[in-house]
Amino acid sequence: MQGKKAKHIHISEGMSLYTRDRSPFYWGYINIDGEVFKKSLKTDDKDEAIKLLTLWKDEILVEGKKVLAQKINVSAKKTLISNTKPIPKEKVNTTRRKALQITSSVVGAVTVAGFAVPFLSAWQPSERAKALGASVKYDLSKLEPGAMAVVEWRRTPIFIVHQTSEAIKNLPSLNQKVANPALEEGVSRTTNDKFSVVKGVCTHLSCAPKYHPEIEPKAWDEDWKGGFFCPCHGSKFDLAGRVYKNVPAPTNLEVPPHSFEGDTLIIGEA
């Protein structure tokens, strides 16, 4: 640097670097609203000097603010503060800030919840599934006493049994043999004593029980009064679908929601 001519480098408004004839270092020049500061930056590296100069300016500004706070000169404070953007605001309205934080959080939460609604609802059964799972009608006039019909409802076989008068008589007498003797609704466990409607799924391990209406001794029961026998694990049910004692199946055959409308049985609608 020595021997070179003194030069002046403009950095930004009110801020510049300059060299002096007999100094190897850069000097800083800062002018804040007419107040001039100068000092040697003790470095001959230009980039370093620029950094130091900027830091120094910030120091002056912070310092200036402190000094000014003690001074009564209001107008000077005003001009200086307007030039002190980098100084963080000290006065924050915390109540307002808190209120805004809460409000925006609530709005944000509502937005997320709102977005979730359609996505969660889309997992409900679709119209197609509802159409396939809709109630099934069955004309009971075709079903002879003692006969059983199998109707599919929601991919489950539904057994519809037309009870004979003998069977209706026998059912209460089996109360000793079945595990849960109380007859729901009526003798047939439906609202119509003549017809039993049960899901054809064994309550043990979901095999399909076989229909054995005959009143005769069977390999699995000497005193068989008619009913369902599950070939998988030997569970026994009476004609109303009640489970016998001491068999693997824990509960009665399930009765699906259903209703009777004259001669029509509607499965799927109670």
Partner: peptide, 16 residues
């Protein structure tokens, strides 16, 4: 309308 409100609230937050 909901997003108009959303924008207004978020604008205030941003300004703050």
């Amino acid at each position: 309308l909901f997003f108009v409100v959303f924008t207004a609230v978020m604008w205030l937050l941003y300004r703050e």
